[in-house]
Design a protein around this nucleic acid. Structure first.
Length: 411
DNA sequence: AGCACA
């Protein structure tokens, strides 16, 4: 009589309004669970990313009969339950309710505490963090540090709503691989709310940034990757596209270094290689992305824009016929296999004109006047409201889109 | 592909 528990891997478990899902795709979302469950009844609670592989989940229906209908439907269906095309297995849970343990980190606030698992501090630059989180709104400040939990970042948004949209979208996800050094394995983001309201950033550095205060003393000459990327209208194919862009740079008031270009162009995807050269007395650069889509997105968003405010360093972009640059041994060129991103980013800008103030951070990209290719309606043509370099004017893109090329990795 | 506390 005591052997009935041996039957647990059968369909003979006692029904529960809580269902147990297994073999889910990696980091399945609540929404995906609700999508397949809601036809059978009202979902009142979910808990996903459960188990060592984070591929299990629980769904609690409002009513037991709803759970029964779902289990019995798939028990007799010729088509198994699927999420993202993957067959998932559904059983009654051996519990009768989902318990949600709300900790302090679940109390919403405008500052997120992000733990980046599986990486060292040097693996994920602050620019990458900023890029990823800027997709959800204006990032005011970032502070990174290492604790026993690992590499962590505090990320300050304007309000709790923005912070929560970022948390909902990114918690449990990974930073896209192409934004990370090759040696990094997985790097899951674990996101909770911080009790902080306003971070106290003392320096712009490789560890902390205040994007609302560009006058803050700069430590280690951190270059900001604070480009708000803009998604141009898709479906326009006028010229042969390429993964390599040819940039001509007009009105070079400031030196345009490999690092500056890397910062600007990295907002759209991995910049694999950069080569700068002179042609006909004009500075040109070739910028290589891994794929045509990224190249096209970068061209669409950057064409005709200036790297610095005041019409300086205006970019004109065309598609190169190159597909793979050979930059080995050529300086000033850049290849991530030869030069670490962080080293590259933190190198001192010794090339500024004498007596010149440090230029505004790259990323301040007011639209060029009359550029026929500047067609994003997301750009505010009042340049004073564009940039992160403007204190107190956050959110040129208040509902900024996911940077091109990143979105699929979260989907 | 087999039951959570984060």
């Amino acid at each position: 009589m005591s052997s009935s528990n041996q039957q647990q891997f059968r369909y003979t478990q006692t029904p529960s309004k809580v269902l147990h899902f297994r073999n889910l795709p990696w980091e399945c979302t609540d929404d995906e669970l609700i999508d397949i469950c809601s036809p059978f009844g009202k979902v009142v609670n979910t808990k996903c990313n459960v188990g060592a592989n984070r591929n299990q989940a629980f769904v609690e229906f409002a009513d037991l009969n709803q759970a029964i209908s779902m289990v019995s439907y798939y028990a007799s269906s010729s088509e198994p339950a699927q999420v993202r095309g993957k067959t998932v297995y559904i059983q009654y849970s051996n519990r009768h309710e989902i318990v949600n343990n709300k900790g302090p980190g679940d109390i919403p606030g405008n500052v997120l505490l992000v733990t980046i698992e599986g990486v060292e501090a040097g693996d994920v630059s602050i620019d990458v963090i900023h890029l990823v989180f800027s997709a959800f709104g204006f990032v005011h400040k970032i502070a990174t540090f290492e604790k026993t939990a690992g590499f962590q970042a505090l990320i300050q948004f304007t309000d709790a709503e923005t912070a929560s949209s970022a948390r909902n979208a990114l918690d449990g996800r990974s930073i896209p691989r192409y934004l990370l050094p090759e040696h990094v394995g997985s790097c899951n983001l674990r996101i909770s709310y911080s009790a902080h309201r306003d971070l106290n950033i003392k320096f712009q550095s490789n560890r902390s940034r205040d994007y609302t205060n560009p006058m803050l003393p700069v430590n280690q000459t951190a270059i900001d990757g604070a480009l708000q990327p803009v998604i141009g209208p898709d479906g326009k194919k006028k010229e042969p596209e390429s993964n390599v862009l040819l940039a001509t740079i007009e009105n070079m008031q400031y030196a345009v270094t490999v690092d500056v270009l890397h910062t600007v162009f990295s907002a759209f995807g991995t910049v694999q290689k950069i080569a700068i050269f002179e042609k006909n007395g004009q500075t040109q650069a070739l910028v290589q992305y891994p794929d045509v889509t990224t190249g096209a997105a970068a061209r669409e968003a950057l064409e005709g824009h200036c790297i610095y405010d005041g019409g300086y360093c205006k970019l004109h972009l065309t598609y190169s016929r190159h597909t793979d640059l050979n930059v080995k041994g050529q300086m000033p060129s850049w290849d991530p296999n030869q030069q670490e991103f962080t080293q590259s980013c933190l190198s001192a800008p010794g090339t500024l004109p004498p007596g010149q103030a440090v230029p505004p951070f790259p990323g301040y990209l007011p639209p060029a006047t009359g550029s026929p290719l500047t067609q994003s309606n997301h750009i505010d043509h009042n340049a004073s409201s564009m940039g992160i370099t403007q204190p107190g004017v956050p959110g040129a893109l208040p509902h900024a889109h996911m940077p091109p090329g990143i979105q699929p990795y979260y989907g």
